[in-house]
C-alpha cells in the first residue's frame, strides 16, 4: 500500500497548464461528470473526465504502485535470513503479494492512458515518488514483524476508504488489495507475539523495532490536512474520502490497544487518553524528517532506487528476448497458415 506520498504538491507546470475556456460540449460533459459524482456513480476508463482528475489519478495510482514495488525491498532483505522455513514461506508470500499489488495498480493507471514504461521511467529517473516509509532500513528480524503490524496496519487504514473511490478501475484494484492486506498485518503481529514470549533479548529487539518504526508509520498518513495541497480536489472528486488527520487518529487509537496486548510501549511521552475527545492524544510529528525523506534524503533512498533501476536494467535482455521469440513464432505460424 502506501498512498501517503501522493499528497505532495501538484507540480507547477500542471497547475498552470495553459488551456482556453471550456467549449459548450466540454461544459456539458463536465456537468454530466459532476452529476455522476454527486450520485455516487463510478467513473469508468472510457468516460469523459476533466484533465486534472485524470492527471491526479495517474499520479496517485502510479505512485501507489511504485510504493508497492519498492516496498518489496526492505522485507525482501530478510527472506534468506528468516528464522524458520515457516516464516520464510510466509514472508515470501507477503512480498509476492506486494508485487501483485503493484501490478494491479499499474494496470489501473494504464486505463487512464499512460503506459507501464512511462510510469517506470518516472520512478527510475526520480520524477515519481513512492511512500517515504520504505526509505528506512530493516535492521533486525523484529522489523519484519513490526512492518506487518504497523506499516501494513497504516496501509489498511489508508486503503480501505479507497475501495469506494470514484474511479472504478482504482476502486476494484483496491478491493483486491485490501482482501490481502489483512494477512499481512496479522502475520506480522503474530510473529511479534512469538518473539515477546521468548527471551529478554527478543523482547528488547521488538521494542527497539517499534521505537524506530512508530513515527515513520504515523507519517504515512501524509501532512496535516491544512498543509496537504492535493487533498481538497481529491475530496471533491471522491478520490479521497477521509482526511489525513482523521485516518492517523484512527490508526493511533487502534494501535495503542494492540501495543498493550503485545506488551510493548509506544515511543511517545505525550500519548494519553483524552476523555473529552474520546481519542488518544499524541505528540508532535517531526515533519522536517518527513520532508527530508520524501525529498530524497532518507537513510535508504539512494539504495532503494538503485536496486530498482538495476533490476530493471538487468532484466532488459529477458524482456527483449521473450518479445523477439514471440514475434518470431507468430511470423512462423502466419507463414505456415498462408
Amino acid at each position: 500500500m502506501y498512498t501517503q506520498a501522493m499528497d505532495l504538491p501538484t507540480p507547477a507546470h500542471e497547475q498552470i497548464a495553459a488551456r482556453g475556456p471550456m467549449t459548450l460540449t466540454e461544459r456539458e460533459w463536465q456537468a454530466q461528470f459532476d452529476a455522476k459524482l454527486d450520485r455516487g456513480d463510478f467513473i469508468e476508463a472510457k468516460d469523459w473526465m476533466p484533465d486534472a482528475y485524470r492527471r491526479t489519478l495517474v499520479r496517485q495510482i502510479s505512485q501507489h504502485a511504485h510504493s508497492e514495488i519498492v516496498g518489496m525491498l526492505p522485507e525482501g532483505n530478510w527472506i534468506t535470513r528468516a528464522p524458520s522455513l515457516k516464516r520464510k514461506a510466509i514472508l515470501l508470500a507477503k512480498v509476492q503479494d506486494e508485487g501483485g499489488h503493484g501490478l494491479y495498480l499499474y494496470a489501473a493507471a494504464e486505463t487512464l492512458g499512460t503506459s507501464r514504461d512511462e510510469m517506470l521511467d518516472a520512478l527510475h529517473t526520480g520524477r515519481a515518488k513512492y511512500s517515504s516509509i520504505f526509505n528506512y532500513p530493516t535492521l533486525t528480524w523484529a522489523d519484519i514483524g513490526v512492518i506487518g503490524w504497523l506499516v501494513d496496519g497504516a496501509a489498511i487504514m489508508n486503503q480501505v476508504p479507497l475501495c469506494r473511490c470514484s474511479y472504478g478501475p482504482y476502486a476494484r484494484a483496491m478491493i483486491r488489495i485490501c482482501k490481502e492486506e489483512s494477512f499481512h498485518q496479522r502475520q506480522g503481529f503474530e510473529s511479534l507475539l512469538v518473539l515477546m514470549r521468548g527471551t529478554q533479548a527478543q523482547r528488547d529487539m521488538v521494542q527497539d523495532a517499534v521505537n524506530r518504526w512508530w513515527w515513520p508509520s504515523l507519517m504515512m498518513f501524509g501532512p496535516p490536512d491544512g498543509e496537504s495541497t492535493n487533498g481538497g480536489d481529491s475530496m471533491k472528486w471522491g478520490i479521497k474520502r477521509i482526511g489525513n488527520d482523521a485516518l492517523r487518529q484512527k490508526f493511533v487509537d487502534a494501535t495503542v490497544e494492540q501495543a498493550k496486548v503485545l506488551g510493548v510501549s509506544l515511543p511517545d511521552p505525550d500519548l494519553r487518553w483524552n476523555e473529552a475527545r474520546g481519542h488518544w492524544d499524541f505528540g508532535p510529528i517531526d515533519w522536517d524528517e518527513f520532508k527530508a525523506v520524501v525529498g530524497g534524503h532518507g537513510p535508504c533512498n539512494k539504495e532503494r532506487l538503485a536496486t530498482r533501476v538495476k533490476a530493471w536494467n538487468d532484466g532488459a535482455w529477458v524482456r527483449d528476448a521473450a518479445l523477439a521469440h514471440a514475434r518470431k513464432r507468430e511470423a512462423r505460424e502466419q507463414r505456415a497458415a498462408a
Binding site: E110, T111, G113, T114, S115, R116, D117, E118, D121, R319, D320, L323
Partner: peptide, 12 residues
C-alpha cells in the same frame, strides 16, 4: 492505453 510515448515504448 493510448500509444505510449518515449523511447523504448515499442519494446513494452
Amino acid at each position: 492505453p493510448q500509444a505510449p510515448a518515449g523511447p523504448g515504448a515499442r519494446r513494452e
